[in-house]
Structure formats: structure tokens, C-alpha cells
Design a protein around this nucleic acid. Sequence first.
DNA 1: AAAAAAGGTTATCAAAATGGTACAAATCAA
DNA 2: TTGATTTGTACCATTTTGATAACCTTTTTT
Lengths: 233, 233
Amino acid sequence: MVQILVVDDDKEIVNAIEIYLKKEGYQILKAYDGKQALEMIKNHEVHLVILDVMMPNQDGFETLQEIRKEKTIPVIMLSAKSEDYDKIEGLNTGADDYITKPFNPLELIARVNSNVRRYVDFGSMETTKGEKIYQTGGLKMNDETKQVTVDGEEIKLTATEYHILRFLLQNKGKVYSIPQIYENVWNEESYGAENIIAVHIRHIREKIEINPKEPIYLKVIWGIGYKIEDISH
Amino acid sequence: MVQILVVDDDKEIVNAIEIYLKKEGYQILKAYDGKQALEMIKNHEVHLVILDVMMPNQDGFETLQEIRKEKTIPVIMLSAKSEDYDKIEGLNTGADDYITKPFNPLELIARVNSNVRRYVDFGSMETTKGEKIYQTGGLKMNDETKQVTVDGEEIKLTATEYHILRFLLQNKGKVYSIPQIYENVWNEESYGAENIIAVHIRHIREKIEINPKEPIYLKVIWGIGYKIEDISH
DNA sequence: AAAAAAGGTTATCAAAATGGTACAAATCAA
DNA sequence: TTGATTTGTACCATTTTGATAACCTTTTTT
């Protein structure tokens, strides 16, 4: 049984989310401001938090930081606007995902499922301060410290490059089309975004590949998409 | 196969939408008011609903709420006016997307595709028909990693070859005519496309068969079509 | 059984699609 | 404002594709 804490000062939204997630088989806890949320987390076993950004008293970011002092459970931020400020701020302070209001119920469910799955899969349930490390061959990514290394040597990626690489590395072996990559990284409809991805792919390759002409990690599947090679030996 | 239910009291619109979406390879179900729509959903496997807001008897929002009591499939609302009221109302009651009439066919298709993709990708698709691994004898296909192996050895197919093989392998044992194969892979009317398939069949054989002259997997049934032999031992 | 017809296979090649690259313009963060 | 990052545009390289046509095989007809 997975318990999810929903935090928003708008009770209607909390109730709507409750309905959707209960149908998916989750147990719901509710809080209407940051303080209540922290209380809840202290006294209950919470596996995932959905956290509104704009709240009275203590806003979402502050609350998120408080949570992060204690726990590494997944936190999904809810934000009324899709402003970049929020995006960056949220993801830098340690949010695992974010959704903009008005939200699409399926997207909510999808993101919750995906984060729960990831969390559970990595066996870092509950107190264990599990490191989020993704790896294939000599390519390592530590999502806590945001460090990426190739054969032990650290490389510097930009934010977008990092997000693309993380998405592919988390799902290493699986092939994703350009729209799929775009939608997962940008949280937006992809429309003629083909070249944008191509450019970022090139930049990533220049940084992680020994010989970008013959990539060993980030490979293309002609006519289908890209993948990170799963190298486990 | 993805089934889409189109609900609008204006039959012309329903038919127009049907034409557009069929071309994209979707199966269409039709209903002309809310009640019929709910019936349809009860009795058929519906993967997405396109729902007009203004309808006699029961309007779109009521219908949407009824649907939401049962299902979490994507619902796209259709509305004659682009008033904000409708948008908010629709999205809060659980619509996943919104299109205003008169709509742009390309936009319709884009939104349908996007919602289906999201729904299917995140595995919340209720059909969950199958594993993504298809196999017969020593021939294996993993549709997530897009890898195809023969007796453990990986082979490289082009996108079209892959799609043809996947179609036949998913339906191993069954025989399909050339037009059937074409229509399933290209989502288009086949018209004098006979030779194209033949050429691809040859390429596939060259790659998956030990001796392409005497194929053991991809067999021809003279005068009828092709099939992938079902080898289960 | 031989000839004719129909159906299937193979080879070649130009056109189209797709991916990669370079660089300029726009945007964003400090 | 400045420098870094991201996005847009244009062009090139490669792979894939579909069209044509000749050539086999199987089936049907005579």
C-alpha cells in the first residue's frame, strides 16, 4: 500500500486529486498548508508528496526544502503557472517532477505512477537515504549531487542536456522517439521540435562520448529514436 | 489497436472526425448523445473519448462526470465557443484536453495522438494486452528496446522492416494478404503497393533466415499472403 | 505434359526521409 | 550588460525507401 500526501490550500483541488488517485489504489493523506504537511510526514509513512507551490504561511519551495532535510521521498510540485522560474526553482531544490494547473488527470496519474515506480524499484522506500544513481558502463549519473562522470572523470552538462540524459539513462536500453523525449523532458507538446533534440543530442555526445561519430552510449535507432545503451557487465 | 469514441449530436461532425482519425489508424465508435456514449463505454473497450459540450438531454460536462466515476481514460472536450468558462469547467471536471469548433483537423489529430501516447506510454492503458516481447522459435523481438535476435544473435532491421515483422510476429500463425500488411503497417490504403511489400519481405528474410531460399520463419502462402510460422516447442 | 498465366523473388538505382553539423539569433541568469 | 545556454535555420551526409524490371516458381489451362 502506497500513501500519498496531497498539499494544497485549495480544498477542491485536493479532493479532485484524491478521487483520481484513490481509483488508482493509492491511500491519500491531505494537508492544506506547509506546516500541516510537515506534521503529516513526521507522523505518517508517506511515500510520495504532491505539493502546491503557492500556499499561505509557508510556500511550496520552503516546504520542499524542509522535507528534503529529512527525507528523499519523491515530491511532485503543483504550480499554477508554467513560468520558468518555478520550473527551475522546483527542480533545483529537489523536486522530482512538476505539474502545471489546470492539470490533466491522466498526466497526474501517469506522473505519480512513474515516480512511485521509480522510487519503489530502487528499493529506497522510507527512511533509507538511497542515492539516486544511474549508470551504464563507464557513464555514471548521481541525481542527488547532479554529477555526471565518464570513466570517473566529471563532465559538465547544461540543465537541458542533463534532463535528456537522465531520462534516457533512467530508461536505459529502451528506445524513445523524439516527441517522446521532448514531452518527457519539457512537459510540453512537441511540435516541430525535431531539430532541437538533435542539437542537444550532439552536445551530449560531444561531452560523454570518446568518439562522438561512433557513440557507444547514446545511440540512434534509424527511423525510430534514441536510446542509452545498457552496458552491464 | 486503439478505439476512440466520438460523441456529438451533429452527425456530420462525427463523420468528419471519423475520417480523419481512421486515416491515423484508429478504430472509431460513434454516439450522438451522452446516454449513448455511456452505453458505448460500458460495452466496448474505449481508449479515448472526444466529447461535444453542447448536446441535447445530457450535456458534455455531465457526461464527462459520469465517465469519470468509472474510468480514467483520456477525454477531449469539443466546444463551439472558445470561452474561458468552458475551458476551466472542462479541465476541472476532469477533461484531459480541449478543442474548439471549428477545429483544425491537424490540431485534432495532434491532440488525439498526444493523449493516446501519454495514456499508452505510461502503461495505464487498460488493455494491457501484452508483453512487449514477441517470439517464435529462435526469433525474438523486444518492442521496448527494439531489439530483434535470431538464436540470440542481434540483427539490425530498418524501421519499415521492423514494423512489418512486428505486425506478423504479433499475429504469428495467421496469414495476411499483401494489402492487409500494407494497410496495417502504413495506415494507408494500399494501391499497387504489391511489390513494395515483396521487396521488404526479401530484406527481412535475408536478415532473419538462415537460408532465405527456404524460409523457416517468414513463409509465403501461395495466392494468399504471408505469415510468421508459429513455432512453439 | 507443355504452354500460358499468375504470383513471387531478386537486383539495381534514384528519390525521399532522416539524422548530423555548423553557425546565427534569441533567450536567460548572473 | 555579459556570458552561457537554448533554440532556429540552413545545409550536408547517410540510410532507407519505393519504382522498375527481369527473372524464377507455382498453378492453371489446354
